[in-house]
Amino acid sequence: MSIQSGVPRSQAGGDLAPERTDPGRSGLADPAIWQVVQDRVLAYVTAAGVTPPASLELAYLAVQEAREEAPGNPLPAAMAALHRRLAGVTDQTNAAAELGRLAQPPISRGHMVPEKIDRRPWYTALVRFSVRLVLTRDHFYYVILLAMALQLWAVLRH
């Protein structure tokens, strides 16, 4: 058993089929079934926020359609008919969908890039100084001079 996504059961031929009612007990003769259909349809239009008397009219038409088209299994037929008819009605469902589209304003993209956090600046400074010492010509000369001075001092000491 699988679900065909996006397609209601009543249209898809019953992939998500709830258990079907016993044909022997179904039909106009069983008022309990029609009570369930009536309650369910009315509950749905109420939950969808359709205001009376339009809600009653919709419910009546849906039940009527089920009665004509599928008296043996009226609930799916009634609900399918109701969904079809609700598509053209302004109810809270449509209002909610409209509101949902306003949940976020248009994006106005900006940048927020972390700056490098140097947690050991003394170490960075040491490394930078060492690199500069080797790579920068002036510093390199200073080092040579310093080494020569040290050498001279050592010679003179002896």
Binding site: S5, G6, P8, L16, M79, A80
Partner: peptide, 20 residues
């Protein structure tokens, strides 16, 4: 999964009266 949510919504409302 929006599509399956629509399907589930409709299928649930079509469930016959009972434990389900």
């Amino acid at each position: 999964d929006p599509a399956r949510l629509v399907t589930l919504h409709r299928a649930v409302w079509e469930l016959p009266e009972g434990p389900e």
